[in-house]
Design a protein around this nucleic acid. Structure first.
Lengths: 190, 190
DNA sequence: ACCTGAACACCGTTCAAGT
DNA sequence: ACCTGAACACCGTTCAAGT
């Protein structure tokens, strides 16, 4: 059978979850697909493009928020994004790089922008605020996820999955999120 | 003469400014110092530690803010950090990685925390807010700096330095910063 | 104490040639 | 159209041996 882009991305995520980004090399990935390394370059122009596809797949579960107040929608989207990132090892770093390289097709910024507009913020300001919020979510989750990696040497006997959400990390995330929303609310009143 | 850590970090920053992070390899760095690659490993245990030292050097110009209102202090610190990052190519990425690896000796979070405390926020909340703000500053500047790199192919005939601050980028930065400060202000009133 | 030379075990990417 | 084999030009890191 033939190799599809979907297969390649799936295998990449499998390596990611089991061994981490440091071990996600083109050669290793090719081996796990029983294929020569060069074969990957027929499907993707380079590693960066492959990682962008991985980032898109990671963000796939993020969808439009449920009906509700704009601030509740922001919270829902941000939480969903964080959950999607925590579901795969080093995902925050990969998605962050994909955004920086502008190779992702993700719509998270658009989702944030729409909810902020619903709150009565101008299109221009909503876009700026949306990217600011994304910086926060990515920054927080990268930090959180790198801490998980460091702690994994100290082998904690906790949940079944190695990728669990620490309750205090969730609290810290929620705190920064509400700080942001309070700022947006203040901007609306002014 | 002998090689000092300071020399190594200085040479690393010189390569950074001229060729970027992608070209900052241990071998290239050693060559620029007229030394064998192995010599670097007498001064630093590994590349990560070297980059952490580079990050510390980049943040050296960041110092305590002048006397004034807490919100003005926050703005001053954040602006100084951004300026320090924009002064060297790919600096935001390096500093971000250094923070994630917890190898930096930088005191920026402490500076942010102190000013927030001066505004009347509890120690606990001030620390959380300080890291949130740092995530924003780093996220924004990484994005901004990666854009500079992409544009440099389109060769813009602008300032003398290739590392200039785009006025609109500064506006965007200030917007997110004031959003954050508005959130902090709302928290104080509550 | 500080550095060299040479090696080890890798990388991403390209490309003629095969099917 | 899709993939292999083999090469090119690199990496970070280690370590005996030198001074």
């Amino acid at each position: 059978v033939q190799l599809t882009k979907r297969d390649v991305v799936g295998a990449a995520i499998a390596i990611l979850d089991e061994y981490g980004l440091g071990d996600l090399t083109m050669r290793r990935l090719a081996t796990s697909l029983n294929v020569a390394a060069g074969a990957l370059y027929w499907h993707f122009p380079n590693k960066q493009a492959l990682l962008a596809a991985v980032a898109d797949r990671i963000l796939e579960p993020v969808s439009a928020p449920s009906e509700g107040a704009w601030d509740e929608q922001l919270t829902e989207i941000a939480t969903t994004v964080r959950d999607a990132l925590l579901a795969h090892r080093d995902a925050a770093e990969i998605v962050s790089a994909a955004f920086a390289s502008r190779m992702t097709t993700s719509t998270v910024v658009a989702l944030f922008t729409r909810s902020l507009r619903a709150g009565g913020i101008s299109e221009h300001d909503a876009e700026l605020a949306a990217t600011s919020l994304l910086y926060y979510v990515l920054g927080h989750t990268i930090d959180e996820q790198s801490r998980i990696q460091m702690d994994s040497s100290g082998a904690l006997a906790d949940s079944a999955s190695p990728l669990f959400e620490s309750p205090t990390a969730t609290d810290r995330f929620t705190f920064g999120l509400s700080l942001f929303i309070a700022g947006a609310r203040a901007m609306i009143k002014a």
